[in-house]
Design a protein around this nucleic acid. Sequence first.
RNA 1: GGGGGGAUACCAAAGUGGCCAAAUGGGGCAGACUGUAAAUCUGUUGUCGGAAGACUUCGCAGGUUCGAAUCCUGCUCCCCCCA
Length: 404
Amino acid sequence: MSFSPVDEQLAVIKRGTVEIVPEEELIDKLKKSKAENKPLRIKLGVDPTRPDLHLGHSVILRKLRQFQDLGHEAILIIGGFTAMIGDPTGQNKTRPPLSTQEVNHNAETYITQAKKILDEQKTTIVDNVDWLGSMTFMDVVKLSSKLTVARMIERDDFSKRYQNQEPISLHEFLYPLAQGQDSVYLKSDVELGGTDQKFNLLVGRELQKSDGQEPQVCLLMPLLVGTDGTMKMSKSYDNYIGIDEHANEIYGKCLSIPDELIYPYFELVTDVSTNELPAVKTKIENDPRNAKHDLAFTVTRMYHGKQAAIDAKNHFEQTIIKKNIPDDAPVIAFKSGKPYRLMEIILDAKLSPSNGETKRLMKQGGVTLNDEKVFDPNFEITFTEHDELHLKVGKRKFARLISE
RNA sequence: GGGGGGAUACCAAAGUGGCCAAAUGGGGCAGACUGUAAAUCUGUUGUCGGAAGACUUCGCAGGUUCGAAUCCUGCUCCCCCCA
């Protein structure tokens, strides 16, 4: 395999990247790699704590994929061991440690999903239980002598928690050491991480240096802002777009992001080529509505294929813009000639979690039957034969009521 | 080991015997509007009930009282200070 010129590689690598520490070392490594025709070892460590991958995770996985496409070696570490410690980064709480079974199960689902982004053939997957798990207490003591307490508590997440009188468990200090040890073991050339991972990645450099290795370059990617437009994408903030979600959901959720996020999303989570990005930028300025639809289409296509993306687009236009009932709305059958209470129908069909909620929705005009708003909680329907009524509850819940 | 502080709904945070299903903010949801599930504005936000009302909820378990998120006892968990 022959590598692309260094400056071309660098352009791809720098797409969306926040910081490369230090950039000169990366250039040197790339030059050497090309000269010796030897791929760089790119490390990405993930903790299988939450098995559902979303676009936030995809940012870094895509970066790893880009390295693969450039001919480098991708090493995906499933942090079986570190998951049991729990990364304290950005946390305001100690993470609950996971059991081995949970970790194994999560790891499996994680890998399945990650393969949607990575080049499966070229990915080396390892589990750090294999080397961290066999370390002795003495090994750990020696390792921990390499970092000072002052160094640890100056970290934002720890100092904040400390100031807010929230607990910090001692084992959380060990996390960066464990992660750094991974780099030593794997002799990584580059480690990928989110900006919040800077500290952890730098520890890797230090440990490699003290082991006599050439230290890794740290490549930091931005944290993807979630659909709410303020916080980083995370399942716990419920502002995420999962890569396993239904095409309609992905499409719709992409449209719900604030306009400022359209470009960052294109840059960070789509496969739109780097030299097309300037054109995308222009389109966003001139026609944000359609640019956002392009984004939604592209992301949906990436995970579900072109046809599903076309369908999702149609679905969106039908249901949200034209407010029509979608074709795939659930169909519920009733007997004709007998009265049914609408509120019960809604509850049975799980279109609303409780009658209280249904009443609230009705009061606010959120329940419509054949485009007529229903305000009366006692509303009853008596079907005639071969009747079909279109029920809409809230913005996005539909049912087709038919009678026999 | 000693001393002090704290635990309230999805989250943050008021409330210190009845007016508390519990202020306020965030989030969520809905309506209007629109270029979209953007933005903005408005409304809404325990369960059951058509309603009146009933029931469950303020860390856990008991108790006092006509009546407790609020008082008492025990327990669990957390934080700080001193050693």
